[in-house]
């Protein structure tokens, strides 16, 4: 099982790199889609969180990535005369910064302890629902308002004239 996990993790990192390093936005988006699938598998198989996995699939893959693909389709980059060139100094600077951050995070990892049991109960939606509608009722409602206003804002911005 652990071998499979490491393969999974390697694929996730690889697809993440794909998001960043692939030249065409469409490829980046598809790479992200692949990363999301792997994440959902991780949730389901190793973290025993089927509800989160399902939401991950529906929201991220079904909505967000598809949405981005639509926008990529609408935004015709080839005709915009936009050829993305990554400048080498910036690349290295970013690499250095990201590396420093990674090292720091790895050091901070020393603070994190704990094991995740491979064999454990699945956490289904009902238990989460209990928590969401009791302890997190207010944030839940606030998030609903936030999304609603985001939708209104998106419509307002996307329309040429209101």
């Amino acid at each position: 099982m652990e071998i499979i996990f490491y393969v999974l993790a390697a694929l996730m990192i690889l697809s993440a790199c794909g998001v960043v390093f692939l030249k065409k936005p469409v490829h980046s988006a598809l790479s992200l889609l692949f990363n999301m699938v792997l994440t959902a598998i991780l949730y389901l198989a190793y973290l025993k969180a089927p509800f989160v996995a399902v939401v991950q699939v529906i929201v991220y893959m079904g909505a967000v990535v598809v949405f981005v693909l639509f926008v990529i389709m609408l935004v015709d980059l080839a005709n915009g005369g936009f050829v993305e060139v990554i400048r080498v100094p910036r690349f290295f600077a970013a690499f250095v910064v990201a590396f420093v951050l990674l090292i720091q995070f790895l050091f901070l990892a020393g603070f994190i302890r704990g094991d995740i049991p491979i064999v454990s109960d699945y956490i289904h939606g009902d238990k989460l629902a209990e928590l969401i509608f009791t302890k997190y009722a207010l944030p839940f409602e606030v998030v609903s308002i936030l999304i609603f206003s985001a939708v209104v804002g998106a419509v307002a911005m996307a329309k040429k004239k209101l």
Partner: peptide
């Protein structure tokens, strides 16, 4: 973006 990441690095550095 650069400023944000520099800030994150600094905060993590202080924590370390």
């Amino acid at each position: 973006g650069w400023l944000v990441i520099i800030g994150v690095i600094l905060i993590c550095g202080i924590k370390l």
